[in-house]
Write a protein that binds this DNA or RNA. Sequence first.
DNA 1: CGGGATCCTTAAGGATACTG
DNA 2: CAGTATCCTTAAGGATCCCG
Lengths: 127, 127
Amino acid sequence: MSDDCETPLSDVQAEACPIVQIIDRVAGKWSVSILVAAIREPVRYTELERSIPGISRRMLTLTLRNLERDGLLTRTVYPTVPPKVEYRATESARELYGHLTGLLAWAERHQPDIIEARRAYDQALAA
Amino acid sequence: MSDDCETPLSDVQAEACPIVQIIDRVAGKWSVSILVAAIREPVRYTELERSIPGISRRMLTLTLRNLERDGLLTRTVYPTVPPKVEYRATESARELYGHLTGLLAWAERHQPDIIEARRAYDQALAA
DNA sequence: CGGGATCCTTAAGGATACTG
DNA sequence: CAGTATCCTTAAGGATCCCG
């Protein structure tokens, strides 16, 4: 999935490629949910599992690892009994979050247009 | 993949959900590439096929249809021989594009951090 | 030229049992 | 509590052929 942005590209596609990479980073079903949950305050594993409906243990762990690997989350283990692990958003993640809320604003402004566009498109097909 | 944002959610996940929906809209391997290509001027089918390395006919058509359905592209057929079809970005898409370039700026600012974070993470694993 | 229809491969994700 | 390991299902995407 990771286009290298290496093999010779037209100027316009050279612009598209890094954008695709970021999108990929926050794509997948769960990345944003976890990121948003960890933005304001550190969260624990089980806390995430409970607050994100439908996520499986497997995907929770996998997505956490990826976010950590990209430097968007830090993972802190408290060697207590029972163990306690906290995930918190990094500064980098908080800046990214700012851009995501920008996208959110766009979505809210255009939601009616999108609904209508889909309705029109689907109706045109049925005809 | 489309979380409904319907089933009762915590306030924080209620915020995450619409963001996930937009990400999904521009996720997938090709959406952004096509969008960017069509932003400045109308483009033709074969033009897209040539300018986006590696895209298959199938995915080009599928992605175009989805973008059109969401009101991000308009499709214009000129009934000439041979046929000519132009895709152009809508106003809505141009606004979305603005937010995407915001993401691009974030990516450029943090690319060194990300590279370093991954390197550190991978090295810690190998140890 | 601009596709649609079909078949196949790969990767994302879900379910669940087990563990330090 | 916070995971890992394993198995299985689904969906995204690729290759190809055909057609107005």
